[in-house]
Each structure stands twice: as C-alpha cells, then as structure tokens.
Amino acid sequence: MKKNLLFLAVLCLPVLALLLLPEQAFAADEDFVSKLVREFYNKTSTWEPTLKRYALIVFRWLVTLEVCFLGIKAALNRDQIPDIFKQFVMLLLMAGFFMAVINYYHEWAWNLINGLGSIGRELTPGGYSSESPFLTGMQLVKLVLDKLSIWSPGNSIALLIAALVIIVCFALISAQVVFIKCEAMVAMAAALILVAFGGSSFLKDYAVNAIRYVLAVAFKLFVMQLVLGVGIAFIEGFSTSTAELQDIFVVIGASVVLLALVKSLPDVCAGIINGSHVSSGAAMTASAA
C-alpha cells in the first residue's frame, strides 16, 4: 500500500508542478527552446570565416592539381587544341560554380531553409511555427488538470496519467525539433570543407553530397513543420472546456501518433533526396515504447 501511494505521489509531482506554476513553465520552455537554437546558430556562424578560408585553400590546391592533370593527360593522349580548350573551359566552369558555393554557402543554405519554412507556414493552419510544440502540450495538460476532482478519484488518477503521457510526448517532439535544427547548423557548417573537394574530378562526389545534404535538411525541416502544423491543429480541436475523458484519451493517441510521425517522416523524405530509403517502423516502435 505504501509503495502504491509513493508511486502515485511521484507520478503526480511533475503534473502538480505544471498546475501550480503554469506561467513560469510556459516562459521557461519558450525561452529555453528559442535560446538553445539561437545559441547554436550564433556559435556555428562564427565558424564560417575560418572554415571558408581553409576551404578556399584546399580548393585552390585541388584546382591547380586538376589543371596539371589535365595538361599531362592531354600531352599523353596527344589531344587536339580544340579538345583541350573544351576540357579547360568545362574545368573553369565547374571551378567557378564550386567557388561561388564556398563563398555563399551559408547565405544560400539558410535562404533555402527559410524559404521552405515560409512556404510551410503558409500551408499549415494559422501559419503555425515549429519553434516550440511543447507549449501546446502545456496547454493540453492545463486543460486536463482543470478537470481533476476529489469527488471522482478514479477519473482523477486516469487524468493524471493522461497528462503525464501528453507532456512526455510533447517534450520528446520538442526535443526532436531542437535536435534536427541543431544538427543542421553543426553539420552544414562543417560540410563547407567538403564543398572544397569540388575542385577535383576525383573528389567531386563529396562536394555534391554536401550540397545535397543542405537540400535534404531544408526539406526535412519543411516536412516536420507540415506534420506539426497539421497534427497540432488536430489536437487543439479538443482543447475545449467540454472535453470529456474519452476525448482526452483520443488526444493521448494523437500525441503518440504525432511523435511517431515527427520522428519518422522527415527522415524518410530526407532519405529520398539522399537516394536512400529510411523505414519508419523503428520510429513507430520507439514512440509506442
């Protein structure tokens, strides 16, 4: 009996904290999420000048070696002047393209991400932004906790469990949002070195993969925003004062499904761009667990 009471007390503590300090919890979450993403962006932005300098050094050496290799190959094959000139012009065009990517990598990448993000806000109901879905979870928990009553202890325990499940699901969704954004910032900044490999025909695939990664990340964030916009708009439809116990359990199911979709669909869409298929079965199993 004591163990059961202790377990119930531990289960209720996080939810009671949200009930007693709702405004502080909202502000803390909003500040934490936005501040964390902003700090990652500020830190990774300071890497750009150093990475660009070394990338240009690597690129110049690779282009020089490529020109030397082109001359040696033309001499050994005894190519005609027009053929040599054609190959040299194509080399200059490719070198100019990759040099432009190196110089404007940061601006072009974030213009692409922000452009798809603005499209996502237009497509989602109410122009939803995926900055902090945890706030929606807090509102749902507040709705659930408002229905607690000492006169119906059975329903109150069920509501407490429901509130705990909802807040955990939305905490994991918010963590997934922060993870994808921070991963994009760090990986895209580091991938600038790989773009310099475009100066060599032997290593050009690494540079193309780095550019393809930017498109994959932008599309991943775009799909995640669409999923969150539709899912949260659906869940918020239950956020009324007349919601009954069965409606709250529908919200629990919708929260778990939304968590599974956020963990699986962006990776699947990014896998299409990268040329690989990512199965969503593992994400579904993890969300259910």
Rank of each mutant, 00 (worst) to 15 (best):
V58C: 09
V58P: 00
R60W: 02
R60T: 11
W61H: 07
W61K: 04
W61T: 11
L62P: 01
L62I: 05
L62C: 00
L62K: 11
V63S: 07
V63R: 08
T64Q: 08
T64G: 15
T64K: 05
T64P: 00
T64D: 07
L65Y: 08
V67W: 05
V67R: 02
C68H: 04
F69C: 05
F69R: 15
L70R: 14
L70T: 12
L70Q: 11
G71N: 07
G71I: 13
I72V: 13
I72E: 06
I72P: 01
I72K: 10
I72H: 06
K73G: 00
K73Q: 10
K73E: 12
A74E: 02
A74T: 12
A74Q: 04
A74I: 09
A75V: 08
L76C: 05
L76M: 10
L76D: 10
N77V: 02
N77P: 00
R78G: 03
R78N: 14
D79K: 15
Q80G: 15
Q80A: 06
Q80L: 07
Q80K: 09
I81G: 01
I81Y: 10
P82R: 11
P82T: 08
D83I: 09
D83F: 08
D83Y: 11
D83T: 15
F85A: 14
F85L: 15
F85Y: 07
K86T: 11
K86L: 10
Q87W: 03
Q87K: 15
Q87C: 01
F88G: 12
F88Q: 04
F88V: 06
F88E: 03
V89D: 04
V89G: 00
M90K: 04
L92I: 08
L93N: 01
L93Y: 04
L93D: 00
A95W: 00
A95F: 00
G96I: 00
G96H: 00
F97I: 14
F98K: 10
F98Y: 14
F98A: 10
F98G: 10
M99S: 08
A100G: 06
A100I: 03
V101Y: 00
V101R: 07
V101W: 04
I102W: 03
I102T: 05
I102H: 04
N103C: 13
N103G: 01
N103I: 03
N103V: 03
Y104P: 01
Y105H: 14
H106R: 15
E107D: 11
A109I: 02
W110H: 15
W110E: 06
W110D: 05
N111C: 06
L112M: 12
L112Y: 02
L112C: 01
I113H: 07
N114S: 14
G115F: 07
G115T: 14
G115P: 09
L116Y: 04
L116R: 06
L116T: 11
G117I: 12
G117Q: 07
S118A: 11
S118V: 08
I119C: 03
I119E: 03
I119W: 11
G120L: 12
R121P: 04
R121N: 10
R121D: 06
E122S: 15
E122D: 07
E122Y: 09
L123R: 09
L123I: 08
L123D: 09
